[in-house]
């Protein structure tokens, strides 16, 4: 088993008086899909935004290939090769598909953009994901369906030579066929050696596609288990109660969290 490419140690984050993340340890391994699960409000999205540099962290360490890094703004994470697909899709409605996919990283010379080149690349990225429902990469994002938006957001993330991809509930709004495609894509990303983090409430998806599962319980990591050695029942217990049998948080901690 390889070393983690991205590792969080004792991460803490509060919003004012609300302590959202408690001493979170979390690792992402190259070539593996790590599912991050937890109930609504457990802190999954907050964890992702801390890594993205959208939320600042109060204490704790972030290690990239074993070396400490500070991820203070979105560019820092992008520079390392970490990409994000957010739950609250971060797309600008008034821009078209290409413009959104290249937002912040336009192909340009002396500040002047090369729109033709960006369009061609956007089309290729979408084609590589077997996207069949988009009729033009010049279409405004405001005219897309929920699933199409999700696809654009994922295509945006894989357009770059990324090493780690975070997908926050990427299938929540998708139909059956598109969910299938996204899950296939998630697997394919990992098979290519990327570290993939999948946040999902769907246990079937998690069991099918993930190699490991990290369960967040009220802002604490309850346990990290291998999917092969675990079961849906155990994971659901970890999500809802923080422990399952002798795996998980100590009873005292569970009670204290409540």
């Amino acid at each position: 088993m390889s070393d983690p490419i991205l590792e969080l140690r004792k991460l803490n984050k509060s919003f004012g008086p609300v302590h959202v993340l408690h001493d979170v340890d979390f690792s992402v391994y190259p070539g593996e899909v790590t599912a991050l699960v937890g109930d609504n409000g457990a802190g999954k999205s907050t964890l992702v935004k801390c890594i993205a540099g959208i939320n600042s962290i109060d204490s704790g360490e972030i290690l990239w290939e074993g070396k400490p890094v500070t991820l203070a703004d979105p560019r820092a994470a992008a520079a390392l090769g970490i990409e994000f697909v957010y739950q609250d899709l971060a797309l600008a409605d008034n821009l078209d598909i290409t413009q959104n996919m290249f937002l912040g990283r336009e192909i340009s010379r002396f500040g002047f953009m090369n729109d033709g080149k960006m369009e061609a690349k956007a089309r290729e990225a979408l084609a590589s994901l077997s996207v069949r429902t988009v009729s033009s990469v010049r279409q405004l994002v405001s005219s897309l369906s929920g699933g199409q938006r999700q696809t654009v957001a994922i295509a945006k993330a894989v357009l770059w030579n990324s090493r780690v991809v975070f997908l926050d509930e990427p299938t929540a709004a998708l139909g059956v066929a598109q969910t299938r495609q996204v899950l296939d894509l998630v697997r394919r990303l990992a098979d290519q050696g990327l570290g993939v983090v999948l946040i999902s409430h769907n246990m079937n998806d998690v069991m099918e596609v993930a190699d490991r599962v990290a369960a967040l319980y009220l802002g604490r990591i309850a346990a990290e288990v291998f999917t092969k050695e675990s079961s849906t029942t155990q994971i659901v217990e970890l999500i809802t109660a923080g422990r399952s049998g002798d795996v998980g948080l100590a009873p005292a901690t569970v009670n204290e969290s409540i």
């Binding site: 703004d73 994000f84 797309l91 600008a92 821009l95 912040g104």
Partner: peptide, 15 residues
């Protein structure tokens, strides 16, 4: 334009 359309998306894109 991106900032005017969705400032949060722009911020996350590193703008």
């Amino acid at each position: 334009f991106a900032t005017g359309g969705n400032a949060e998306a722009a911020r996350r894109a590193g703008i």
